[in-house]
Amino acid sequence: MIKIKDLQHHFKIGKKGNERHVPVLKGVTLEVGKGEIVAILGKSGSGKSTLLHILAGFMSPETGSVVVNGQETAALKESQQASFRLENFGFIFQNFQLMPGLSAFENVELPLKIKGMAEAERKMKVQKLLEKVGLEEVAGHYPNELSGGQQQRVSIARALITDAPIILADEPTGSLDSETEKEILLLIQSLNKKLGLTFVIITHDEEVAAVADRQYRLHDGELVKGEQRHAV
């Protein structure tokens, strides 16, 4: 489903003309199969977010390739990448990234609006999904009227609404307390089992990584295979 091969990237640091090149990814190779949960562990600055951004097509790698569902993502133009993301990826962000001016319902509805789905069809779909993630009672609430856990559920619902097969989660529980974190992780596991969704989770938290089928650790730009859930 996802094939990352020999991915290399570096950042430029310093003033123009006196720049230093700091390598972030040094030949990362990774394969993720359909229905897997894969966790990328790493400390702050280890390059795990850069890996996710390249995988999502937010930035292009300097060398190496990312193939998602048979498509080399770097070969796509900006507009094609947007369409590709809409069809293939759902995103869960650490700080939820909800639209403050839209209600929970409207936030979940937004990707379908972008997709151009007819109003009646998308309203029904959003309603069903909100019931599934336990948000039907707060559907009309705005993000600032929701708890952190509820906001992340809205964010997860927004990631699921387009039926994208791959969910990319960047520190999905980073802004949540431990109790809510458990709820969210259970929800991710349940969605993985029930819907067969593929999850790539970027985290610094070992407990979060523990829900994954496979764990990898990014250290000094190199990906090292970690523990497997079944072996834990």
Binding site: F58, A82, R85, E87, M99, L110, I114, T162
Partner: peptide, 16 residues
């Protein structure tokens, strides 16, 4: 800016 970024991230075309 952040909202535009989110929209682009979830699949909005630049022309939209």
């Amino acid at each position: 800016t952040r909202e535009i970024g989110v929209m682009k991230a979830i699949g909005a075309q630049p022309k939209l």
